[in-house]
Design a protein around this nucleic acid. Structure first.
Length: 516
RNA sequence: GCCCCCAUCGUCUAGAGGCCUAGGACGCCACCCUUUCAAGGUGGAGAUCACCGGUUCGAAUCCGGUUGGGGGCACCA
């Protein structure tokens, strides 16, 4: 329990009551949104932000937030990723009203199950309906045949789309294919009509479905495909607003075609801008760090991450920039979301993380630092260490290096530096050895109980001054001797934490190094 | 290739016809503070609002085009 990463900072299960709006206002026009991650990898930054926007939208309007696991492609390792996704969403403080609350756990909500792999019957039934109504038809084309057609089309500069070969198969043709052992895929007969919809973020958008071609909705092995399944589930779960990434914008006309064929009610769509790599392409693993876990492991705070993510593509229209999750939910308007993509600016995340770290109370910081520091440092030390580190942490993980001198042995620390590192500019080894001797003498005179930062600083300053040393120059060799580094937490606090005995021993060791 | 979306400092953005000789933040550069590094303070550089045409007394803001960027066009999700 001691080494676990910090749990989500807020109540994971729901927003604090301070949100200013009753959470479960029974509204007849009740808004239902969903997040449908696919457990094919660790929670992605983009997925996290889409989840966040859905969450903020739902909370803002008092709607219901559904988590649905898009595990159509039941592959190995799915459970692991599902766990990762749920854990990290919780870590961010994002909660949902319906869906699996715990990885592998029971689905909670009136529309359960919320895992697609468990809803196959429904998909099969809906597919049959489409087939029966003539809105969909069997296609016996093989992948090779399809590819050949595609190549042909490319050569002729035509749009690469299905040529409708199987649209009018005779029973004899079908029987022949079946006899060959071919199993049919199911294609939607896409009506060649213009599709327009009013995007929550972009306004009116129009596509021409005549350009689409009949797409496959159920594979020849019986597995339903994504476009079909989302539409069926969204209807079944009575989703009213589909808020998703812009990469789905051009998929929307397919979905609308499906919705019409199935006789469903059309939800509102909102397509949020993509998060971009520094080169402005869609943020990808290849070019950026995309796993939320990776940020968590480095010691980014969930509050900072949420604040940062929320502002990639949205702003409250004021110059305020620090917002808690609850405050974001209060302010967030889906219609204010930008249309253009936003580059993931790590410098800005770093800055925000620093702001949040500095705003933490010492006890909170100590608690959150726990997973990043060795067990050898007990809670008492952590409490005293926290204020020393607070001003200089960008990530919690940076504490590891800053506090390393505490757990390293005296000889390790000595080995960390060349003797030259001890020398301030313009000072010789002999002079510095002299200074260390003076410091050692002065510090040795401080009895154990008085060995505290204030006292140590006073003594060292007096000593430096008495011997014509500039404070900075006098402190440098001490810092290097004690921490083995040129950069450290404040010197006297560091000494105090190290303790009298080890402090003196390290100064002696440094003196020895200068001599030898 | 086809379709769709987008376009304000390097980055995130404010701006919804006159308040803009375009504001803030990050980053960057100075200086101050200072025991290192940070943090903090002060100041600075940085955007002819992609470009070209309209509309208007007046346009970053409205319209059209161009260019550029992005996304999508699978028996992946």
């Amino acid at each position: 329990m001691t080494r676990r990463a910090p749990a989500c900072a807020t109540d994971c299960r729901g927003l604090p009551a301070t949100i200013g709006r009753p959470m479960s206002t029974p509204d007849p026009t009740s808004i239902r949104v969903r997040m449908a991650p696919s457990p094919t990898g660790s929670l992605h930054i983009g997925t996290a932000r889409t989840s966040l926007y859905n969450y903020l939208f739902a909370k803002h309007v008092g709607g219901t937030y559904v988590l649905r696991i898009e595990d159509t492609d039941v592959a190995r390792g799915t459970d692991e990723w599902e766990r990762d996704i749920i854990d990290n969403l919780h870590w961010l403080g994002i909660s949902w009203d319906e869906g699996p609350q715990v990885a592998g756990g029971e689905d909670i909500g009136p529309y359960a199950p919320y895992r697609q792999s468990q809803r196959m019957e429904l998909y099969a039934r809906e597919a049959d309906r489409l087939l029966a109504s003539g809105a969909a038809y069997h296609c016996y084309c093989t992948p090779d045949e399809l590819e050949a057609v595609r190549h042909e089309q490319e050569r002729n500069h035509e749009a690469p789309r299905y040529n409708g070969r199987c649209l009018r198969l005779s029973d004899a043709d079908r029987a022949a294919f079946e006899a060959e052992g071919r199993r049919p895929a199911l294609r939607l007969k896409v009506p060649p009509e213009p599709i327009r919809f009013d995007d929550l973020i972009r306004g009116e958008v129009e596509f021409d479905n005549a350009l689409l071609g009949d797409f496959v909705i159920v594979r020849s092995n019986g597995m339903p495909l994504y476009h079909f399944v989302v539409v069926v589930d969204d209807e079944a779960m009575e989703i009213t607003h589909v808020v998703r990434g812009e990469d789905h914008l051009s998929n929307t006309p397919k979905h609308i075609a499906l919705i019409r064929a199935l006789g469903y009610r059309e939800p509102k769509f909102g397509h949020i801008p993509l998060i971009l790599n520094p080169d402005r392409s869609k943020m990808s693993k290849r070019k950026s760090q995309t796993a939320i876990t990776a940020y968590r492991e480095q010691g980014y705070l969930p509050e900072a991450m949420v604040n940062f993510l929320a502002f990639l593509g949205w702003s409250p229209g004021t110059e305020e920039e620090i917002f808690s999750l609850a405050e974001l939910a209060e302010r967030f308007e889906i219609g204010e979301v930008h249309k253009a993509g936003a580059v993931f600016d790590k410098d800005r995340l770093d800055y925000l993380n620093g702001v949040y770290i500095r705003s933490l109370a010492d006890g909170q910081l100590a608690y959150r630092l726990r997973p990043f520091l060795p067990d050898a440092l007990d809670d008492g030390i952590l409490m005293r260490l926290a204020p020393l580190l607070k001003e200089r942490l960008v990530r919690l993980g940076d504490a590891t290096e800053l506090a390393a001198y505490l757990t390293e042995s005296d000889s390790q620390v000595a080995d960390l530096h060349e003797p030259e590192l001890l020398l301030p500019k313009g000072r010789s080894g002999a002079e510095v050895a002299e200074a260390l001797a003076l410091a050692h003498e002065a510090l040795a005179a401080v009895p154990e109980p008085d060995f505290a930062a204030g006292e140590l600083e006073a003594i060292c300053r007096t000593t430096a001054e008495a011997h014509g040393w500039k404070a900075g120059d006098f402190f440098r060799p001490l810092r290097v001797a004690i921490t083995g580094r040129l950069v450290s937490p404040p010197l006297f606090g560091s000494m105090e934490l190290l303790g009298r005995e080890r402090t003196l021993a390290r100064i002696e060791a440094a003196q020895a190094r200068l001599r030898g």
